[in-house]
Structure formats: structure tokens, C-alpha cells
Nucleic acid binder design. Sequence first.
DNA 1: AATCAGTACTATGTATTACTATATACTTGT
DNA 2: ACAAGTATATAGTAATACATAGTACTGATT
Lengths: 112, 112
Amino acid sequence: MENITEMLKGVLEGCVLEIISRGETYGYEITQQLRELGFTDVVEGTVYTITMRLEKYNLVDIEKKRSTMGPPRKFYTLNAAGQEHLEVFWRKWEFVSSKINELKQNQNEKEQ
Amino acid sequence: MENITEMLKGVLEGCVLEIISRGETYGYEITQQLRELGFTDVVEGTVYTITMRLEKYNLVDIEKKRSTMGPPRKFYTLNAAGQEHLEVFWRKWEFVSSKINELKQNQNEKEQ
DNA sequence: AATCAGTACTATGTATTACTATATACTTGT
DNA sequence: ACAAGTATATAGTAATACATAGTACTGATT
């Protein structure tokens, strides 16, 4: 799916939070998981800006670990604030997506 | 629902297109319809920037009409390009929202 | 040993977009 | 005359995903 950039704004951070919430992970792996999910054009730089933001707002705990596959990895885990943030995200998503689907549903009412 | 601004980016334009597709309407009325839908904090300025964009990319036809309730209204209708754009929007929405719901669905697989 | 591919983090700058705030103007009711 | 509701217009701001590039480590190929 091409050019979904703008539609991803505001949801990509939540997706990253959700991925982290499933267990310790790091930037490169998060990028790959987003690509596997279907957001194939997401690049490392994008995920990096998000993880930096999560750090900045203290939503994650960080641990640096060596890897046999390349340079050290920065592992993230959600802390309490991050968990809270994730729940708020899903509540917002439920709200917004339900409203948009409502609009979509009414598509056939055009001719009234 | 507070602070859904970022989540509306990339979808609000599509919502406006959908509203216009149901029949001739104008900026002020579009704003009200978005508010009725649940996006209560959307303001006229926001809708104005969107309709200006639609004009700029020639997705709408415009007709100015007098009103008994205030200054003249600028009525919009979707043209063929706008209709096409709207269909692309819904395809993108289907894709993105299904992927995010997939992610959400798997919430309980965290402990595997 | 030298090079390259894959892994992995970091950094800067840009485009897009919704919002804020404000200005202008028309109509009706008081 | 004035205020409130209706309605368009515009400049400036903040947030975010992306493009692009750089640095660095490991293992395999040459």
C-alpha cells in the first residue's frame, strides 16, 4: 500500500508502544515488526525518532546489551507511564476509528 | 475525547471528501457535521485549510451562493478526480485500520 | 587483509498537516 | 447602534513521519 504516511501520523507511536509492551525489544527489531505487519515502507529513522520521544517522555526503561550480530542493542521495556500511555492510545483509536467507520457505513445513505 | 489531533492527521481530509460526496455543502456546514460526528474540537480554520487544499488539487467544483443567514456560501461538490481520491482514501483506511486492529487483537498474545 | 553485506544506533533537515488566533463581512434581532 | 450567529480568509505554530546520511560492529567472501 503506497503513500499511507499521513495516515500513520499519530498511530505509529502507539504501534511501537504496543510492540514494546509485548516484551523487551530494540529499534531495529521494531522496524522489522512494523514492516511484517504491513507497513513495509517504515524506515529505521522513523522508528528512531519515536523511540527517542518515548525516552524523552520517560515512557520506557532502557538497557543496552551486546549482540553477536552487530553493534550493541538498546532494549526498551514499557514502564508504568508507558503502559498508561498505551491504554490511552487504544482508547483514542477506538474512538476515532469507530467514528470514521460510522461515516463510512453511511456511505449508502447518500441518495436520500 | 481530548487530544486526538495527531490521530486525525491524514484522515480528516478523507472525512471532508466523504461529507462533500453526499451532496453540495460548504465549509461551515462541514465543520458542524464533523462536530456532530464526534470530532467536537474541529474548528472552522482547520476545515478551511482542507477545502483550500481540495480546491488547489482540483478535486471539487465550486459554486458561490447567497444565503439568508449570513454572508455568501461557497458550495463544494466532488468532481471525478475527487471521487477517485475518496475511493483511494477508503482503500488506505481499510488497509491501515485493519493492520492496526490486527495488532490490537494480538494484545493477549503478549505472554507467549 | 581487505572488502562487503547485514545489523544497529544516531543525527539533521524537510514536507505535510491540524490547530491557534485573528480579521473581515453579512444578516437578523434587540 | 449593537451583539450574536453565520461564513470565508490568512498568517503563524507544533507535531510527526520521512529522506538522507553517518557511524560502528560482526561474519563471510574475495
